[in-house]
């Protein structure tokens, strides 16, 4: 099972969004390295503030890498505003049972999901697909 999971994994790394993220990271990391090195020079030149920034720029580089990782692995259909809309559309059935004021109670999501699935076979298939993917979590983590 080393390479069989790759169709989905490979496309994950090659979407337009992902490629843009790769390019941005390739610019960002060396940029941070240059800036950090420049601040080390400033610090050695006697300005103690330079030490702060020579620590900060590597932190920014690491943060950029984290940001990149999320950009590549987030599916725009499940994350962000669109994911939220989708989640609401699927989890909240249009049967008029009120979810209640947000935050006051947490109705059993799985129960509502099950009810929504009964009404929508396509959703049920989608969720089955999601849980199948969840089963392959290890394969997903491996780089293609």
């Amino acid at each position: 099972m080393t390479d069989t999971a790759s169709p989905s994994a490979r496309s994950r790394w090659l979407t337009r969004r992902a490629v843009l993220a790769h390019v941005a990271l390739l610019v960002w990391i060396p940029g941070c390295a240059v800036a950090a090195w420049w601040q080390v020079g400033v610090a050695l030149g006697g300005d103690s503030l330079g030490w702060v920034y020579s620590v900060m720029w590597p932190c920014f580089a690491v943060f950029g890498a984290i940001f990149w990782w999320f950009l590549v692995h987030d599916d725009p259909d499940t994350v962000g505003a669109r994911g939220l809309r989708r989640q609401r559309a699927t989890v909240t059935p249009e049967t008029g049972d009120d979810v209640g004021p947000a935050g006051t109670s947490s109705p059993d999501d799985s129960e509502r999901l099950a009810r929504a699935e009964e009404e929508d076979p396509e959703l049920a298939a989608y969720n089955a697909y999601l849980s199948a993917l969840a089963g392959q979590e290890k394969g997903w983590r491996r780089r293609p």
Binding site: S48, L49, V52, Y53, V55, M56, C59, F60, F63, I66, F67, F70, L71, V79, G80, A81, G83, L84
Partner: peptide
């Protein structure tokens, strides 16, 4: 020197906290 140093380090913490919070709030990229 003093305030610049404090702001510099706190900004890193700010980055982490703000990133997490905006993700939870589904703020567009």
């Amino acid at each position: 020197r003093v305030v610049g140093t404090m702001h510099g380090y706190l900004y890193i913490v700010y980055l982490v906290v703000a990133f997490e919070f905006t993700r939870r709030l589904r703020v567009p990229l």
